[in-house]
Amino acid sequence: MQNTNALPFLIKLSEHTKENVYFELRLIKQYGFSLTFGEKEKNGTSIVAPIFPWDDTIAAAISISIDQIGLLEQFIDTVVKCAKEISNEMGWIG
């Protein structure tokens, strides 16, 4: 199970400088996922995990949205596992 308490707060959209975007991308690569809170729906949460092909670039992403933050940890591992399985099918060995 990923430790979501170790993740820093997400950067607000208004604070998306080039440096902040690169910082967030490094966190996503380190933890294997990203979280969003209330971007599309009030109280909505999305879990997004990158999909890597053989060359270790980001080819796509898999995501789910939930409306109950209490279910968050239950789904993080599932989303990350699915993204890794797809990545492995695409030749990623990371």
Results as ranks from 00 to 15, higher is better:
residue 50 P to C: 11
residue 79 V to G: 02
residue 40 K to H: 10
residue 57 T to C: 06
residue 51 I to A: 02
residue 24 E to K: 04
residue 59 A to E: 12
residue 32 G to S: 11
residue 89 E to H: 10
residue 89 E to T: 08
residue 21 V to F: 07
residue 5 N to S: 13
residue 61 A to S: 15
residue 30 Q to T: 14
residue 71 L to F: 02
residue 26 R to Q: 13
residue 25 L to G: 05
residue 94 G to T: 08
residue 53 P to Y: 01
residue 87 S to N: 11
residue 34 S to L: 09
residue 33 F to H: 08
residue 51 I to R: 01
residue 42 K to D: 03
residue 32 G to Q: 11
residue 4 T to H: 11
residue 9 F to H: 11
residue 10 L to P: 01
residue 15 E to F: 05
residue 57 T to Y: 02
residue 46 S to R: 14
residue 82 C to A: 10
residue 51 I to M: 03
residue 49 A to D: 02
residue 39 E to F: 08
residue 45 T to D: 00
residue 61 A to M: 09
residue 93 I to P: 00
residue 24 E to L: 12
residue 49 A to R: 14
residue 40 K to I: 14
residue 75 F to E: 15
residue 20 N to E: 06
residue 45 T to G: 00
residue 33 F to S: 04
residue 22 Y to M: 14
residue 86 I to L: 10
residue 3 N to M: 12
residue 42 K to M: 09
residue 72 L to A: 02
residue 44 G to M: 05
residue 64 I to A: 07
residue 90 M to H: 10
residue 77 D to P: 15
residue 58 I to M: 14
residue 14 S to I: 13
residue 40 K to P: 00
residue 68 Q to N: 15
residue 46 S to W: 10
residue 50 P to D: 14
residue 28 I to S: 08
residue 81 K to I: 00
residue 70 G to F: 03
residue 20 N to M: 09
residue 42 K to F: 07
residue 33 F to K: 04
residue 56 D to L: 02
residue 83 A to N: 06
residue 15 E to D: 15
residue 32 G to M: 12
residue 42 K to E: 11
residue 69 I to S: 05
residue 10 L to C: 03
residue 52 F to W: 15
residue 45 T to P: 00
residue 4 T to R: 15
residue 30 Q to V: 04
residue 88 N to E: 10
residue 66 I to T: 07
residue 76 I to R: 03
residue 14 S to T: 15
residue 91 G to H: 06
residue 35 L to W: 02
residue 77 D to N: 12
residue 84 K to T: 03
residue 35 L to Q: 06
residue 69 I to H: 13
residue 71 L to I: 07
residue 26 R to W: 05
residue 59 A to G: 01
residue 56 D to V: 01
residue 47 I to M: 07
residue 45 T to W: 05
residue 13 L to H: 10
residue 65 S to M: 10
residue 24 E to F: 00
residue 83 A to Y: 08
residue 70 G to Q: 12
residue 71 L to W: 01
residue 42 K to I: 12
residue 37 F to P: 00
residue 1 M to A: 15
residue 7 L to V: 08
